[in-house]
């Protein structure tokens, strides 16, 4: 067979619609991950030791089990407790929770990289805990971890196809369903999906590398 440009281009609007959902899921999941990750990192520093250890093991558990299974657990498990959410919302929560376990580690390394002298100075100035974190530690820790956080944005983007397993019609699923509906063979569509992924992730990777040069990475 040969590559059929007309067919590939005629399906492009449908793929772009899928890409739109992919991007929404990525952004939603990412916002959740960077907020939740920071909360986790702070809890591990500030909460009593037993709570910190508990949170550590929960995060370790999340990090060493597959995102796909976690999505299934949320999607099929939440209704058991009477919580029924649309697949897209479950997908965003799943992505956010999973990646929070990674971003928490990133924040931790950033916080640990803040020089000891800064902490001592904050103590010497008798700053309240809240000011120490918001005024001294985090403003120094966060810029350093921006490139590492950016890498997880790209990783998350590439994990969004998993949402097809719980019925979200993201990019890959839109191609799959379109070819099933039209009875056309999926070669062009699947290839287009691959190319669209590259079209987003390679420029983003280059951008992240630019960020890495700009902010000295941890």
């Amino acid at each position: 067979m040969s590559w059929d440009w007309d067919y590939a281009l005629s399906a492009l609007p449908i793929l772009l619609q899928g890409l739109q959902l992919t991007v929404i899921a990525t952004i939603g999941g990412y916002v959740l991950a960077i907020v939740l990750g920071l909360v986790v990192a702070l809890v591990r520093r500030l909460a009593p030791r037993w709570a910190g250890t508990g949170v550590y093991w929960v995060m370790e558990f999340i990090r060493s089990t597959p995102l796909l299974v976690q999505l299934f657990v949320l999607y099929f498990g939440l209704p058991v407790f009477g919580i029924v959410l649309p697949p897209m919302v479950v997908g965003i929560i799943g992505l956010g929770l999973h990646y929070a376990a990674y971003t928490a580690e990133v924040y931790r390394s950033g916080i640990e990289a803040v020089p000891r002298g800064q902490w001592e100075a904050a103590t010497a100035l008798n700053l309240p805990t809240r000011r120490v974190w918001t005024g001294v530690v985090l403003p120094q820790a966060i810029p350093k971890v921006i490139p590492a956080l950016g890498n997880y944005l790209i990783s998350m983007f590439k994990d969004t196809p998993l949402l097809l397993a719980i019925g979200v019609v993201e990019l890959l699923n839109s191609a799959y369903r379109h070819s099933a509906r039209t009875f056309e063979d999926p070669f062009e569509l699947m290839t287009m999906v691959g190319l669209l992924f590259l079209a987003v992730s390679i420029p983003s990777a280059i951008f992240i590398r630019h960020l890495e040069r700009r902010y000295a990475a941890v």
């Binding site: 890959l172 999926p186 070669f187 699947m190 290839t191 691959g194 390679i202 990777a205």
Partner: peptide, 23 residues
Amino acid sequence: TEFFRGVAALVLMYWLFYALPYV
């Protein structure tokens, strides 16, 4: 490196499994 890091593993898997048979 750039090529295979850029494509999601699942997309690659779908391509190999569902698309490649047509060629």
